[in-house]
């Protein structure tokens, strides 16, 4: 029983990491129709921005996290201004995809050249593990859950309670109608890309002290993120939250029943099953 409880706790912690990364990806897809294959690399850049400020420049971790989120927000907007704004809407889907693939190839190698290809250690604020009822809960992972709740809650509040957030939802529902009502599509796209990247940067800020920073860390995360938004439904924010938790729990409980190489197979089998029953994903819509 203790093993299952530990797996449940681990699954929630793992899911919390996935949720924040996947939120940015699904936000950008839902509102901008960009399948951002470079999202994992943007997440990786976040980890190195954090390393630069916290380790190289000696800035306090929490301040470095805020700086990272701001820097990634600006970076996201720059990507929109320089690349994606040239190919808006569904018509530019293929060209945007090529840009993303190019960025996914260039960014890790550039970071590797600047920072070396070795993993970087980002010291954790908390290194101890809490112990109760035979369970081990590393404090740094609790911090991940806390951050994740703050980020997800903050994003939903932003979308529901602010004019910009409402404008973003309007664009997601019907871009042309929103434009006729005076919503600036280009501005919404700018914010959307900025927020997507900021979410990736935020996720990197609280994941990198747990898992380290490596130029190649984006590849694995993007695979998991795509799995999540397929499970939850492409473009659905609540779906990303649900998908992240399902994937985290599956990867946590999976090794208890099958060998590690079989866990991925189990996950993909689950995805196929979900798509057969509900092709739009659990909370997605056609």
């Amino acid at each position: 029983m203790a093993a299952y409880t530990q797996a449940l706790v681990n699954g929630i912690m793992l899911g919390a990491i996935y949720v924040v990364v996947a939120l940015g990806l699904t936000l950008v897809f839902g509102m901008m129709h960009i399948v951002n294959f470079a999202h994992g690399e943007i997440y990786m850049l976040g980890a190195f921005v954090l390393w630069t400020f916290q380790v190289a420049l000696g800035v306090n971790y929490f301040l470095a996290t805020i700086i990272t989120v701001v820097v990634l927000f600006i970076l996201g907007m720059l990507l929109e201004l320089i690349f994606f704004s040239r190919f808006p809407g569904r018509a530019g889907l293929f060209k945007s995809l090529i840009i993303c693939l190019g960025l996914a190839a260039v960014l890790p190698n550039t970071v590797s050249l600047i920072y070396s290809p070795f993993s970087k250690n980002i010291p954790s604020v908390f290194t101890n593990s809490l112990q109760f009822a035979g369970l081990f809960v590393p404090s740094e992972r609790l911090l991940v859950i806390l951050f994740s709740v703050v980020f997800v809650g903050g994003l939903f509040l932003f979308l529901k309670r602010t004019r910009t957030g409402q404008a973003m939802i309007a664009v997601e529902q019907d871009g042309e109608a929103a434009e006729m009502q005076g919503v600036s599509i280009s501005r919404v796209r700018l914010y959307c890309m900025g927020i997507g990247a900021a979410l990736a940067g935020g996720a990197a800020s609280f994941v990198a002290p747990v898992l380290g920073a490596s130029p190649w860390m984006g590849g694995d995360m993007i695979m998991n993120s795509f799995n999540i938004i397929i499970i939850g439904g492409m473009g659905s924010l609540p779906g990303a939250v649900l998908g992240g938790l399902i994937l985290g729990l599956a990867q946590s409980f999976g090794p208890m029943w099958v060998s590690p190489p079989m866990v991925n197979l189990l996950v993909f089998f689950m995805i196929i099953l979900i798509l057969l029953v509900k092709p739009t994903g659990l909370l997605g819509h056609a």
Binding site: G11, L211, M256, P260
Partner: peptide, 17 residues
């Protein structure tokens, strides 16, 4: 026990094996 290359979170592996 083999582990999967590319794994980033080893909590499930450690707790299961």
């Amino acid at each position: 026990q083999y582990y999967e290359p590319g794994t980033t979170d080893f909590a499930p592996f450690i707790n299961s094996y």
